[in-house]
Design a binder for these strands. Structure first.
Lengths: 346, 346
DNA sequence: TTGTATGCGTTATCAA
DNA sequence: TTGATAACGCATACAA
């Protein structure tokens, strides 16, 4: 391999000068810098990351810890993070920490302790007390996406707000029998819970009775839950708030299978703006996981550059995208006002 | 930080002995080994990866290059790779190389050249000549999943075989008007092409006329293509082979929307066994991307241990999973034999 | 079985 | 503005 010594020799300077020219730090005359850069390029010189890390203490690498990789939200966030890091010349080391697995234990006990990174991004991790402790003990800047904001910078959707807006949308359309489908996840629990609370608050504010149907946070989960819910004519709502788009889409598919046209017989609203939302004409509250990932990475990189950057918490407000899965309930004219008395109507 | 010198001092041995005890290489008496390990643990000693890399030339890290992260197949493979690497104590550095992006260029030009890994796994990369050249030039063991098998170990589905089996399934059921939906991807092109060819071969073998409908390789893509295809009554087939499950599921959704019951009016078969396949009762040819990722990682790790491991190419045969999206065409009784003359029947 | 000494490829300190 | 030299933290050849 060609090292900095080779470059220095070929350029007729010392290793020290070559290093200064290549890293851009310290005084070097323009002419020699140019010469060093030229010879380095012609020799195909690439600095050994191991040697650089050893000498500087920096790795030019960022660790990303997430409980799932293949779920839509996580995969999108990961892409966003990768985008930003790539632009800044940082590598990305991925740590998969599925809840309850032995791998997760090893990630926290062994892998993180190696500190092969300058900083850490935790995505939707929901760490236990012990895990959080270890995370902090690593002693590197930490940014979390959808995570507990204790002492670390955080970015994430305002879930309470999103669920409120989703529910309000149905209320404003005149719906009174509105069910919330979700809230059944063991993990992803905090987000799911906040959305349920947002729904409940809005229902209470509107003087409506809440109806909560548990569902795993997935498309098949939403499908199954909705089949159950919609199959019973007496319980059947006219509107459904899905805890996320996958659940909402599952509900739409269930409704179609049961012969319930959407939105004329059933309105469905989700949260996410999932890549399939458009295809199902799903009205939803948009969050942009890709952008969240990018922002998280940039927050972290800033902390690496300027260690005194204050810790910030970013709560994003989702915006409502109205498509064709929501409409006034049957019997209610387009104007939404004055539908209050219809509570008992089938 | 606590270094090996601290451990050595505390244990009353030299750095060399401490190193031997900790790495497990070279002669150390059981008693001192035990003592060193104990003190290392009590001091919370963790070797500096940078120093180890510099001294040994090994990184204990594997690079993974893939064009997409958030697509089902890639995300699953990635999880499988991560699983295996984690078990063996290897880190995973991820390189996103979306076709046509500036990031991809930088990955090949800058990031790979840094060689921050002992080996590389390329997933569905479809590298250009120039890119392939750089990949080889890295000079590290390379395993590819769904990739060109020139000089490198490869693992991947036998796409020709899978498409043949899918098509044969419909032929055996008695279908004669069978369309292939797919073959429209710019990227993912090789796989898509092989599946098309497998379909075409089987149709030719059966003496049937092929019908190819272009579609992007995605659920919405399959949906749109199927809406087009099924909307025209005169062209309408009784069977559809989707180039993958997402396309096939898109077709099922399209059929339902058009009031065509599946499988009584239309049979659909896919390739993948996607996580949504079960929910849509999709008959499909199963491949297991997670397992492919795990195997790829293990093949690579073996090459790292035993550099003379021969290059191998693993072509996996998908197995047919029959669910409820396929049935004999209307008018054809359960026995599939003797349906040959019905070519022109609507 | 253990200790000494050297090298891995850079950066950083200090003199020149 | 440049050069000699000492870290950086560990593994290992060699000597003991």
């Amino acid at each position: 391999m060609v090292g900095i010594a080779d470059v220095a020799r070929a350029a007729g300077v010392s290793k020290a000068t070559a290093s200064r020219a290549l890293t851009g730090s310290g005084y070097v005359s323009d002419s020699t810098r140019e010469r060093v850069l030229q010879t380095a390029a012609s020799l195909g010189y690439v600095a050994s990351t191991a040697a650089v890390s050893l000498a500087t203490g920096k790795t030019q690498n960022v660790g990303v810890v997430m409980p799932y990789i293949s779920r839509w939200f996580f995969a999108e966030v990961l892409e966003g993070i990768q985008d930003a890091l790539l632009r800044h010349g940082y590598d990305l080391t991925l740590y998969d920490a599925r809840p309850g697995t032995d791998g997760r234990r090893r990630v926290f006990e062994d892998f993180l302790a190696r500190k092969r990174f300058d900083g850490l991004i935790a995505v939707g991790l929901e760490p236990s007390d012990n895990e959080l402790e270890r995370l902090i003990a690593v002693g590197r800047p930490l940014v979390s996406v959808v995570g507990p904001s204790s002492d670390t910078s955080t970015i994430g959707l305002d879930d309470l707000h999103a669920a409120r807006r989703a529910t309000e949308h149905l209320v404003e359309l005149g719906h009174t029998r509105i069910a919330f489908v979700g809230g059944g996840g063991q993990h992803w629990a905090h987000v799911d819970h906040m959305r349920l609370v947002g729904y409940q608050q809005t229902m209470a504010d509107a003087g409506l009775a809440p109806m909560h149907v548990f569902s795993p946070v997935s498309l098949p989960g939403g499908y199954a839950a909705a089949v159950d819910l919609l199959g019973d004519v007496r319980r059947r709502p006219t509107g459904i708030v899905g805890t996320c788009d996958e659940v909402a889409i599952g509900a739409i598919i269930a409704a179609r299978r049961l012969g319930l046209p959407v939105p004329s017989s059933l309105s469905v609203v989700g949260i996410d703006n999932h890549e399939y939302a458009d295809m199902f004409s799903l009205t939803t509250l948009e969050q942009q996981p890709h952008a969240q990932g990018t922002q998280a990475a940039e927050m972290l990189l800033r902390q690496l550059r300027e260690p005194n950057t204050p810790i910030i918490e970013l709560r994003l407000h989702a915006t409502l995208i109205v498509r064709n899965s929501t409409a006034p309930p049957t019997g209610v004219p387009s104007a939404a006002v004055g539908a209050a008395g219809a509570t008992g109507a089938g």
